[in-house]
């Protein structure tokens, strides 16, 4: 009995997806809470202090490394699974009424994940990459509060962010409970608990994130 099948069998691959997925769910709570500080009406002082703590702290750098490993493991395993699973049916059905037996978003996790990845690339290019560049070359981080304000003055970028978060909502709506099911927990008396928390989380997190570009665009943030 080896460790290998824990990660590579049909069930093992799902453990990788579920584990990294739940890790990213935890990360989103942290990300969301920090960004929420922009709503403190002190011209972004609180937000910048927290951002500074996250930016200049070696523990955070190690965690950030782990985060990237988690994100890419989730993306690569997700794509691999989508492609492998697709190949399991070489001849497709001529007529298929999948809407009658399952939800569209549970069947579209690969597509939704890819949309979120495209969003992420733009998001990193907007904030993470210029900030790191500035830190390495200048030894100081960017004023991310000002950067948010200037970037989110563009309506098209706000719409792009909202579209990314909309994909995230559907992805989480299935992914949250699916991850718990993969670990055998979405069962019996835990079902209402996990479904309830999962649905609330999937709505709350994207809505809180969406509030940021929207409120900056409409000038609700001082």
């Amino acid at each position: 009995m080896q460790w290998k099948q824990l990660l590579t069998s049909a069930v093992g691959k799902k453990f990788v997806m579920g584990f990294t997925g739940l890790f990213l769910v935890l990360f989103l709570i942290v990300h969301c809470s920090i960004n929420f500080c922009i709503f403190v009406p002190d011209h972004g002082k609180t937000f910048l202090e927290v951002a500074h703590f996250m930016g200049f702290n070696w523990i955070m750098h190690i965690l950030e490394l782990g985060l990237f490993v988690g994100i890419f493991a989730h993306i690569i395993q997700g794509w691999a699974l989508t492609l492998q699973n697709r190949n399991k049916r070489p001849v497709q059905y001529a007529v298929s009424r999948r809407n009658q037996n399952s939800t569209w978003y549970s069947r579209s996790m690969g597509l939704l994940g890819t949309l979120i990845f495209i969003f992420l690339l733009v998001h990193w290019a907007n904030f993470w990459a210029p900030n790191r560049y500035h830190m390495i070359t200048g030894g100081k981080e960017l004023n991310l509060f000002e950067r948010m304000k200037s970037l989110f003055s563009h309506g098209w970028l706000v719409i792009f962010y909202l579209a990314g978060l909309f994909s995230l909502f559907w992805h989480l709506l299935h992914g949250f409970q699916s991850a718990f099911r993969t670990f055998g927990l979405d069962s019996g008396k835990y079902i209402p608990l996990i479904r309830g928390i999962g649905t609330a989380y999937s709505i709350l997190v994207p809505v809180i994130f969406a509030l940021m570009p929207v409120s900056i665009y409409f000038g609700w943030v001082s």
């Binding site: 049909a10 399952s102 993969t182 670990f183 069962s187």
Partner: peptide, 28 residues
């Protein structure tokens, strides 16, 4: 055979209405 995506199509189509909770049991 492929991996499970938890879409629950299997449970909906099963003529014997086998609960897909059994998949959670198998995973555990």
């Amino acid at each position: 055979f492929g991996s499970c995506s938890n879409t629950r199509a299997c449970e909906a189509e099963c003529p014997k209405e086998i609960s897909y909770s059994n998949i959670a049991k198998l995973n555990l």
